[in-house]
Simulated assay, not measured.
Amino acid sequence: MSGPLFGIVPAGQPLIAEPSSTPSPTSFLYALPTTKDFHHIMVFLLPAVSLPPNTAAAIYLATASDVSSGNPNFKFLGGIGPGKESAMFKVSNATTDGLVIGVEVESEESVGQRLQELAANKSKNPSGAQQQQQQQQPPTVVLAQRIIQNAFNFLASFSGTAGPGGVEVVPLKAFQNWWEKFESRVRADPSFLEKQSD
């Protein structure tokens, strides 16, 4: 594999197409800039580049000091290849060390297996924001009770008595009015019932 194969773009930074080192014919290391903060990087195959058949590119991340010490602790981020020529990854360059992206051309099977493991780990260990959302989201029963309470409160103001037994009735039009208002509120803020305190 000769010539630049991959492009790396840290958010808000220029394109990096030349690797800072090539440990093997299928391994490429790209030192990321330390001058500005960024939180995402895009990795992609350069135009007119195609990988050998049945291969894909595994994307890894390590700190520059780990790489220079000869003991890199690369973390698998994801992969690109035929049918998925680019990917964006969330990273943090808060380290003063600097970051290095490693790209390794491997078998499609190996990269696919690693992607499945990564997806399984994410579902077992959701990020802090996902955990917080899962913990804060009320159960379906509570949401149903809040919808009923909302309807009851609205319709109570329309109730009147009718007939010989003094039975309370609510005009059907009132229910239609409640539904229109409720639907409009859900469209404006789909999570309003989740935020409501009991």
Rank of each mutant, 00 (worst) to 15 (best):
D66N: 15
T63F: 11
L61I: 12
G112Y: 01
Y60C: 02
S65V: 11
I101T: 08
P53R: 09
E117F: 06
H40G: 06
A57Q: 04
E108G: 04
D37C: 10
A87R: 03
K122S: 13
N73A: 15
A64G: 07
V105A: 07
Q113M: 06
L99A: 08
T55E: 14
G112E: 09
M88R: 12
T35A: 14
V91D: 10
V105N: 06
N73K: 15
S68H: 14
P52D: 13
L115I: 05
R114D: 00
K36H: 14
K122W: 11
F44G: 01
M88W: 08
V100I: 15
E108P: 04
T35W: 09
P72V: 13
N73F: 13
D37W: 10
P72C: 14
A57T: 03
Y60S: 06
I59G: 01
L115C: 06
G81N: 03
V103A: 08
L45E: 01
S69V: 12
A56H: 02
A48C: 08
L77K: 02
P52H: 07
L99W: 03
K84P: 00
N71E: 15
I41W: 03
T95N: 13
S86E: 10
V43F: 00
P82V: 08
I59Q: 00
K122H: 14
V103L: 10
K90F: 13
D37P: 10
G79V: 01
S50E: 15
G83I: 02
A48V: 11
T95S: 15
G98N: 10
F44V: 00
